[in-house]
Design a protein around this nucleic acid. Structure first.
Length: 479
RNA sequence: CGGGGUGUGGCUCAGCUUGGUAGAGCGCCACGUUCGGGACGUGGAAGCCGAAGGUUCAAAUCCUUUCACUCCGACCA
């Protein structure tokens, strides 16, 4: 009974992971489909997670001196085309506005797939002197990319994200910013989302369109598949040259500033679902959970039960904990399942027996173990359990990553890992993108995830071609 | 963009082969009994069967077209 699957309406992970994902999204009321392909309705429970993500990240950005701005939704085609690599990268997935009111537009307008070009146009007007630098801008917006196949949160035609765009007087400073923001993402994934993840540099082939360097955070999902969780790019002065952004430096010389951009999106909600969830549904990391503790009165028709539960809810709320008291007339059993499905980290049960003992029952969503807590120190007991849920989630993800990471010293081992061991493969690489192409081809989709910062030396030669190796690369399949 | 699948009350689906004017379970609403792991009874509301054409006395069912969604690949946060 203890291990019995409590929620029958969710397909089990082992049966069909993709179906499990879709079931969780729907049953936990995170999102719904809309009339436009690839555009999803983010429901209140899903949006509340996003709001908590925003709050946390926004604070981290602002602590580092970034300011929020808002750029237009529409980009004139001519503006988009100024940077060659960039436009080539994004043109295939742009949505265009060609008619305004009743009239054909003289120039078509792209619905932003990302806003580098708009920021550049603006930077050109506001950056003239070294005193104008750095510019540390960020915006929270929606973008549109006309994706061919879509899945809620993971790949949608329209998605929400933040995009940071910064300009710096020197290359050093811009490069530092790129890495600083990657670190912000790494910390956020670990501390807030409870997802320890690999960070590193993208290979030439996997770089962002127009970037000199792209850094990435690569969390692993429960089934071993990677999800690009966020990226941070160093652009050099390429865009500045293309968009004619210059400033006069201290030495009275006209120079091009150095640029970065970095972003994370609603895809992170997909990462939360797939990194932490189980067969009973969602498991939310406490720091972003819209409801951290659900209070379920038991035998609530008995006098005093509801009042006592409300009193406890109030006490927790005053301590800054996000609580929900479910006094609907569904049975307690129904409520247990419902909030497990929705991933609420801690459940608090309170019935007549508990009231007699001045206690309550606390249940962790991760272990589902019941413990009794005295009502006198219920706040600290709940806080302790929330903290332990956070720790357990981190621990579980670490274990999963460790058990699904293999090492391949040669070509045959690589093929064996790709075919039989889901997850990451560590292997040496010569630096030639032809080898990346070949490995992806022969394995049916295993790609380089990144060159991690802490490289290991597995052998001297490239796992694919046998020439001298330049780097250890982490390989894997991705969403 | 290629390959598969599915469209019938809110949800999951049956009915289609062999045309006769729509069903089940769950959910929803009301009342009552329940209440420590998805309770039960009684009553009730709710569907022009994805859309458009066609065949026919008659179409959810047969034919044509089309749209949407979904899954698996190739491309991306």
């Amino acid at each position: 009974m203890a291990d019995k699957k409590m929620v029958e309406s969710i397909t089990s992970m082992d049966t069909d992971f993709a179906q499990w994902y879709t079931d969780v999204v729907r049953k936990a009321e995170l999102a719904d489909y809309s009339g436009v392909k690839g555009c999803m309705i983010i429901r209140p429970y899903g949006y509340a997670i996003w709001e908590n993500i925003q709050k946390d990240l926004d604070r981290r950005f602002k602590e580092l001196g970034h300011e929020n701005v808002y750029m237009p939704l529409l980009i004139p085609e001519s503006l988009l085309q100024k940077e060659k690599d960039h436009v080539e990268g994004f043109a295939p997935e742009c949505a265009w506005v060609t008619v305004g009111g009743e009239n054909e537009l003289s120039e078509r307008l792209c619905i932003r797939p990302t806003s580098e070009t708009l920021f550049c146009e603006h930077f050109r007007n506001v950056i003239h002197s070294y005193r104008d630098l750095p510019k540390l801008y960020n915006q929270w917006v929606n973008v549109v990319r006309w994706e061919k196949t879509t899945r809620p949160f993971l790949r949608t035609s329209e998605f929400l994200w933040q995009e940071g765009h910064t300009m710096h007087a020197t290359e050093e400073e811009a490069r530092k910013e790129t890495l600083t923001m990657l670190k912000v993402y790494e910390d956020f994934f670990l501390e807030t989302l409870a997802i320890p993840a690999v960070v590193g540099r993208k290979t030439e082939k996997e770089k962002f369109a127009g970037a000199m360097e792209t850094y990435t955070i690569e969390p692993m999902m429960h089934n071993g598949v990677a999800l690009q969780g966020g990226t941070s790019h160093y652009f050099g002065d390429g865009f500045a040259r293309a968009y004619d952004i210059t400033f006069t430096d201290r030495d009275n010389k006209v120079k091009y500033p150095h640029q970065t951009s970095w972003g994370v999106s609603t895809r992170m909600i997909g990462a939360i679902i797939m990194a932490h969830g189980d067969d009973n549904g969602l498991i939310l990391p406490p720091k972003v959970a819209p409801i951290q503790v659900v209070l379920i009165p038991v035998q609530m028709q008995k006098p005093g039960v509801l009042e006592k539960t409300a009193e406890v809810a109030d006490k927790l709320r005053r301590a800054g904990i996000r609580v929900k008291l479910d006094d609907s007339d569904n049975s307690p059993g129904w409520k247990f399942s419902e909030y497990e499905m929705k991933g609420v980290p801690v459940r608090l049960e309170l019935g007549p027996r508990d009231i007699e003992n001045n206690s309550c029952v606390l249940v962790s969503r991760v272990s589902r173990a019941k413990t009794f807590a005295s009502l006198d120190n219920v706040v600290s007991e709940v806080e302790t359990m929330l903290a332990s849920v956070q720790e357990e989630l981190v621990h579980r993800v670490r274990e999963n990553v460790a058990s699904k990471t293999s090492t391949a010293a040669n070509y045959d081992e690589f093929l064996d890992c790709a075919a039989n061991r889901p997850g990451f493969i560590k292997a040496m690489w010569c630096g030639d993108s032809a080898c990346e192409d070949k490995l992806k081809d022969v394995t049916g989709g295993v790609k380089s995830r990144c060159i991690p910062f802490n490289e290991e030396k597995i052998s001297d030669v490239c796992v694919c071609c046998g020439r001298p190796a330049k780097h250890m690369v982490i390989w894997g399949r991705q969403y």
